[in-house]
Design a protein around this nucleic acid. Sequence first.
DNA 1: GTTTATGCAAAACATTTGCATAGTC
DNA 2: GACTATGCAAATGTTTTGCATAAAC
Lengths: 143, 143
Amino acid sequence: MLRKRSYALADQLQEALGEQGYRTTSPRRAVLQAVAGQERHFTAEQLREQLPKVGRATVYRSLRLLVDSGALCRVLLEDGTLHYQLSHHGHHHHLLCVECGSSQDLLGCDIEEQLHEVSAAHSFQLSGHWLEVYGLCQDCQPQ
Amino acid sequence: MLRKRSYALADQLQEALGEQGYRTTSPRRAVLQAVAGQERHFTAEQLREQLPKVGRATVYRSLRLLVDSGALCRVLLEDGTLHYQLSHHGHHHHLLCVECGSSQDLLGCDIEEQLHEVSAAHSFQLSGHWLEVYGLCQDCQPQ
DNA sequence: GTTTATGCAAAACATTTGCATAGTC
DNA sequence: GACTATGCAAATGTTTTGCATAAAC
């Protein structure tokens, strides 16, 4: 079931890249399938370990493609390591559990609006931002 | 005048480290003076270039000391590079100009409060966050 | 057939570490 | 004199790049 979902997602990603003029190759498909099958955020090297037959450069190049196309987002962990994560909902933020590594999307949040207000108050023309939120998810909280 | 301020600040940093049991050495003083004289955020390597006589490891070790003691904060630029910046006001955020590289402190902002509310709504126990805001400062905005 | 993608190995960074030496307290 | 800090060079970890080969369109 999860498998099925992963394959469907991989095909979807493939199609999106195709529309942007990128070719369908088997290494690329392998990367997409691996990405689609990730249950949580992952590093480039973790992905690479799962794809021993794909060259390192291809993994990195594919990741960049996916980030640029909006399919993946970069996530900065508290220890400074860069992870990647499927991005289903356009721009949004994550609640990252520092214990188990899970990640919840932060929904119904008007941080953007507040940032716009505060920026305006500082005569600053906002163009982007990066927000990561760290803490404990429900399952990892003491009792 | 700026010079004078830098020296005073360097001494202040030195003193703070002294209180924590760290020794006063001339390489360390050189790093502190260079840090105190920075007009904007800087990378470890930029600092190192300004201190050709100080070993690379010492520069990095000193930076870590200063971050841990709260005198410096890390700043993540939009291109993913890590910079450092003097931190006068405890925990706060920055409005980073992507054009000239200047940085304004974000004051009078209750992002924290909002994050607490949203986290609670997701049953998430907030412990920290990282926020960077990118855009154009007043001087770099068209006309 | 033209263009794009791959794989490899090497280069490029950025940061950390081991260890002998030197300096502080 | 005991302990801490330094400097160097080497190791580490991560990401990028050049280039010849191979595959896609």
